[in-house]
Design a protein around this nucleic acid. Structure first.
Lengths: 186, 186
DNA sequence: GTCTATAAACTGATAGAC
DNA sequence: GTCTATCAGTTTATAGAC
């Protein structure tokens, strides 16, 4: 488990989608990386849409695990939100963007089954942040006036855009700026 | 002028890049929309990279014109920055994302000549906002403490990400939230 | 400027042997 | 599970006539 062909294919595909976009990598690229033939890939993922769906499923599961880990910690809500930002920082430090952000920019070309998964990933991030902000306010840790949902959407949008800008400018400092400016309004 | 074949091709291509991404539209799509043959497109834009470069040149020229218009107005710096945000709002209201944001997510696959144009577009936006913030502070209109450059990067990142999120969620309210939260720190 | 004709490479995908 | 062989369709691009 974790290292069979299907997982290797997902690992390669994830990197290729993030680097090039869903429509700019092929089963051929994948085959070359993993060391099998293109026809063999179809055994694991009959159509490219199936591969994309598996990719988003795994990516969403990883998000859920990361958020659960943050919630398991005994700590302040501010530390949890910083932990959320760190997930994006790890992505930016690799020179990468979010898989979900990459797919969102190709949204119209995605197989029908894949599009809702992209929206769901963003929604899950937003509602988690919103809850953290509400808990922090209820506990007297935060005293901001902005709507919690508005703050959550702004943080996700800011971080998604920051990854895009960071890659184009070859500098991740924009992530720190977004973090400082949004989290200041808690 | 403004309606010859080359311009029609650019109009169609711009919409297709924004809607599908640079690698998910073809000269065939373009030919069908404009009503000529694919071979004829190569007369105007020998390679797809030439088309992309022309697209970014026109898009950047339009940005420059819009920023010059904002600067020509006798008004507050706050109104100018709101005017900048309105450029993105017009894009989001059409259900679109920024051409530059779309290309940024396909960055690695772009022809070499095109990549710097994407970075330059973002940099131009950032430095313009930074100047507006500095002018506003020098004039006593703003009293924020954040670094002007940090604010400018956050606004551009926030708006780029907001367009992505808005399209995925079919709701443009995220743009308003980003505007409110970032411009509050002026 | 636009056309027909054509090319060489690549695409996602299937059939069937091992 | 992986292979060979093959498919029909698509892609960017060129040559040369009109």
């Amino acid at each position: 488990m974790g290292n069979d062909t299907a997982d290797q294919l997902l690992d390669s595909a994830e990197r290729l989608v993030i680097e090039r976009g869903f429509n700019a990598f092929s089963y051929r690229d994948l085959a070359a990386e993993v060391g099998i033939r293109t026809a063999s890939i179809h055994y694991h993922f009959p159509a490219k849409g199936d591969l994309g769906a598996a990719l988003m499923r795994r990516y969403t599961d990883r998000l859920d695990a990361a958020l659960a880990r943050l919630e398991g910690r005994t700590t302040s809500e501010a530390a949890r939100l910083t932990g959320f930002v760190d997930l994006y920082r790890a992505t930016g430090d690799r020179g990468a963007i979010c898989l979900c952000g990459s797919l969102a920019s190709d949204l119209a070309t995605l197989p029908d089954a894949l599009r809702p998964a992209v929206s769901a990933y963003l929604e899950r991030s937003i509602t988690w942040i919103e809850s953290a902000v509400r808990r922090g306010r209820a506990a007297g840790e935060f005293h901001g006036v902005f709507d919690a949902r508005a703050l959550a959407e702004s943080l996700v949008a800011g971080l998604q855009g920051a990854l895009l800008v960071a890659r184009a400018q070859s500098s991740t400092e924009v992530l720190d700026h977004v973090e400082a400016i949004v989290l200041r309004q808690l």
